[in-house]
Each structure stands twice: as C-alpha cells, then as structure tokens.
Design a protein around this nucleic acid. Structure first.
Lengths: 112, 112
DNA sequence: AGAAGATGGTCCATATATAGACCATAAAGG
DNA sequence: CCTTTATGGTCTATATATGGACCATCTTCT
C-alpha cells in the first residue's frame, strides 16, 4: 500500500462490519466464553478479537469469519451443507457468464 | 504477527469467503463492470479485487464489504435502514449482557 | 470489602498484505 | 481473423496489521 492511503468506506460497509462484530460479542457472552478463550481457539490474539468485536474494518476477513463460526454467528446460510450448495450454484452460474467484460464498444450511439 | 504463523481456517469460513467472492464476481459481470472499474471505485488495486473474488481469506474485511456494496451483493440485510435497525437492536441487547464473563467459578461440582 | 479475573487500552517489533509495474494469455467484437 | 482489452499471474517496495507485553480499570464472586 505504497502511498499511505486512508481508505474511505461507505456507511453500509461500516454498519455491516459493526453489526457483525456486535453479533459476535453478543454470541460470545451468551455462550459464556472469555475473550481469551475465543482468541485462542481462533488462533488469534485477544487484541485482534477486540478489534473484530468493535467492528474494525481493517481485520482480515478470514479471522473475522473464523471467530463468527466459533461463537456461532451464521454467515449467509445457517448450516454448512446449504452453504456448500449455494457455493456450487454460484460456480455454475459463473461458468455461464462471459469470461471478460467488454467495455470499449465505443460509438455507443452518443451521436445525435 | 511475530511468530510467522500459518493460520488455519475451518471449512465453513473458507466456503463462506469463497461464496462471497463468487457472488461478487457474478454480480460484477452481470452489471458489466470491469475489474479495473470496480477496483477504482472501491479505492483498491485490481490485484486485491482479484484476490477478493477468488475468496482469499487474508483480505481486509472493509475492502471486501466495500466491493460487495459497490457491485450490489447484500450483506445481512438488503437495505441500509434494516441494517441500521438491526445494529441498534444488537447494541441494546449487548447492553443487557454481563460486562465480564466469569470463568473460574472453580469447584464446579465435579466432586462426586 | 477483598480477591481474582476479564476487559480495554497503549506501545513496539516484525510478519505480511497491498499497490503498482510488468508480462502472458485469452476472449470479445469489429 | 485480427485488433483491442480484460484477465490472471509474478515480482518488489512499502505501509500497516498483528502478536505480545504491559498496565489500569472495572466486574464478578466469595
């Protein structure tokens, strides 16, 4: 990330991340799990878990999803098999779409 | 991340990330958007977008969610207001839960 | 109230994700 | 078919996220 960039995020993205973090924290407490315990199970540090629960946008998605899985917050589909099926269907669908998106048709009838 | 750790992820996390990436790619193509266009709009590099669409677990969640938002893949709730409401409810719920999770009650009646 | 423990924050060193340039290939469209 | 351009990959430098230690404060339970 050379230029030292401060990335901007839409409200939707921020809300979604904050919501996910909140759900994780709530789920963790309902299950009476310590931050340290969950962090250990996820193979991350307690500090990172705190940031995830706070809705920090700059955490790796793998860590966030892993924690969500551990405390029982469903992503997309509740069960694994449903998710797998959905994944397969998406792959099939993707196979049908054009491989490349053509942009420069140019002369797009902006002539009048 | 001192110790040079290769993080392990559950199948569920991997599938969820792959699914999200696939949905993003499918949505992008349906909308006839070039990888470069979406990357520019999201303020990220084309390379990162490729990794996101491939379901790379080590991308920052903010970038992933931002791209999803741009191409129109819904996170949690479809519309923003619903998401905001859900967020509020989660915050309220969280306020009711105990602030700390006690673990060492010890002497948990394992004595018999 | 006191003790034990959980949480939240800071700081630093370092592993690593990212941007950007580059190249090769493939695919769309004229 | 031939041109154009989108895609996918590699490589490098650098910005930065993370782990770990530390500390202060607050909670819970006795």
């Amino acid at each position: 990330m050379p230029k030292s960039i401060t990335r901007s995020y839409s409200r939707y993205s921020r809300d979604a991340t904050a919501l996910l973090g909140g759900l994780i924290r709530a789920a963790r407490k309902e299950r009476k799990l310590t931050a340290q315990e969950v962090a250990d199970r996820a193979g991350i540090s307690r500090g990172l878990l705190q940031r995830i629960e706070k809705g920090d946008l700059k955490c790796e998605i793998g860590a966030v999803f892993e924690v969500a899985t551990i405390v029982g917050v469903p992503l997309f589909e509740a069960d694994e098999s449903a998710l797998s099926r959905h994944l397969s269907r998406t792959r099939e669908k993707l196979a049908l779409l054009p491989k490349s998106v053509r942009k420069k048709s140019k002369t797009v009838r902006d002539d009048f």
